[in-house]
Design a protein around this nucleic acid. Structure first.
Length: 421
RNA sequence: CGGGGUAUAGCGCAGUCUGGUAGCGCACUCGCUUUGGGAGCGAGUGGUCGUAGGUUCAAAUCCUACUACCCCGACCA
């Protein structure tokens, strides 16, 4: 990718009102996103690269966990939501509208209805279970107050999966598989996270746990034990109006250690739904004695777009974003300085670009007609882990300078570059 | 929905109190000089001041209504 032909509209400033939370400010400044309406964003090329990387890691781990990808409709008919009794229950967060025939529809905030309908019409025998189906798709929730950029937006990208089982034991087994897959996803991305017990909320069901990325700007307050791995969403321990600070120093409910308070961003949530939906929607299979049984269900969500913001909240400095390597939009940024003075610079930088690209690195070549200051500032802002500079030192001594995002600099001959990075 | 704000050039802002030729910085275009920490000089482009009404000789500025957006709260896989 040549920067001069690419579309990375970086900004020096954002409106003070948009700068309330660091990830939003940096995503706007680095040219990753632009706002279209409250809680609704366009993903620009740079942002989309990151979003796609997160998406692909999630997809790989879902496939490894034995889940199968589908794509369900975003537009859903009222009938289905009547079956689950949620058309009336869901409230104004469900964006409803009518088609030209005056029929009621909504934009899917989640897909329990669609998937349950699909499975009950196409799976008849216990022999076809367990089944774990997922999709990666845009969700719409008409939040009362969208905020913090893509962290709490109305339209967002989510991976949601749903599992179907004959028995509770089978559900428990898949639940654990998904729990492990989720842990692996956040480990692979390189985020500091915690699994906490949670309220299952409007979705309903028996058991649920949330995955939180730990960050000061998190919307949720977590209570964690200082001795054991006990962790819980603090709201579960609080009486009405009680301050979460009052939990600090209390004995952990698991009897092991004292509670501490930390802030988290909820990026994943896994549920054991039990038979809630299968009973409401009459989703059954025949068991080995030929009797119709309501299926046990689990559902598992990950906020793909929210992970991007959460990763920034956990990895930034005063210069900009510091991407974990796993989701950086580029591995390397090759910067040329004064290329029209020294024709060698253009030729050599393009040659290196080509070589590294062929070796599998994702490289951007900053060939813009600008000085060092602007280019390195942009490189730091967009958070690329490594910059390689062709400048004076190359003209004089045939050496490039390798600058890591942490500020370390190394002069290097061209044939040593690959080793150093 | 309650409370608090904001809306003027692509972006960031001043001007509004006290009505009188639409401003600044950045960006952008052209030229020349530059090119290792957001370059310099010169010349330019770009706005019916959120929308609709009203007051006035005259409205970005005063009045009324509306809309959008942001923050706090309630809410929230």
């Amino acid at each position: 990718m040549f920067w001069s032909n690419y579309f990375i509209p970086t900004l020096k400033d954002t409106a003070s009102e948009d700068a309330q939370v660091i990830s939003n400010s940096l995503m706007l400044k680095s040219g990753m996103i632009r706002k279209n309406a409250s809680g609704i964003y366009t993903w620009l090329p740079l942002g989309l690269r990151v979003l796609n990387k997160v998406e692909n890691i999630v997809r790989e781990e879902m496939n490894n966990a034995g889940a199968h990808e589908v794509l369900m409709p975003m537009v859903q008919p009222k009938d289905l939501w009547n079956e689950s009794k949620r058309w009336d229950k869901f409230g104004p967060e469900l964006l409803r509208f009518k088609d030209r025939h005056d029929r009621d529809f909504c934009l899917g905030p989640t897909h329990e209805e669609v998937i349950t309908d699909l499975i009950k019409n196409n799976v008849k025998s216990y022999k076809e279970l367990p089944l774990n189906i997922y999709q990666i798709q845009t969700k719409f929730r008409d939040e009362i107050r969208p905020r913090y950029g893509v962290m709490r937006s109305r339209e967002f990208l989510m991976k949601d999966s749903y599992s179907f089982h004959l028995s509770e034991e089978s559900l428990e087994e898949t639940y654990q598989i998904m729990r492990n897959a989720y842990s692996k996803i956040f480990e692979r991305i390189g985020l500091d996270f915690k699994i906490v017990k949670a309220d299952s909320g409007a979705i309903g069901g028996d058991k649920s746990e949330e995955f939180h990325v730990l960050a000061e700007n998190g919307e949720d307050t977590l209570a964690v034990s200082d001795k054991s791995d006990y962790a819980v969403n603090a709201e579960l321990l609080l009486e009405n109006g009680q301050d979460s600070k009052s939990l600090v120093g209390q004995e952990s409910p698991d009897g092991n250690g004292l509670l501490e308070i930390t802030k988290g961003i909820e990026v994943g949530h896994i549920f054991q739904l039990g038979k809630l939906y299968s009973e409401n929607m009459n989703a059954t299979v025949l068991d080995d004695s030929g009797k119709a049984k309501n299926m046990h269900m689990g559902c598992y969500g990950i906020g793909i777009s929210r992970i991007v913001a959460a990763a920034i909240e956990q990895n930034f400095d005063d210069k900009g974003i510091i991407w974990p390597k796993s989701i950086s939009p580029f591995d390397l940024n090759i910067i040329t300085i004064g290329a029209d003075k020294d024709k060698n610079i253009e030729a050599s930088s393009r040659k290196l670009y080509k070589e590294l690209t062929q070796k599998g690195f994702e490289v951007v070549l900053d060939d813009r007609d600008d000085g060092f200051g602007k280019k390195i500032k942009d490189s730091e802002l967009i958070g690329v882990p490594v910059s390689i500079v062709f400048g004076k030192n190359f003209t004089d001594h045939k050496k490039v300078e390798i600058i890591f995002r942490n500020g370390e600099k190394v002069a290097s001959a061209l044939n040593e570059v690959e080793e150093i990075i």
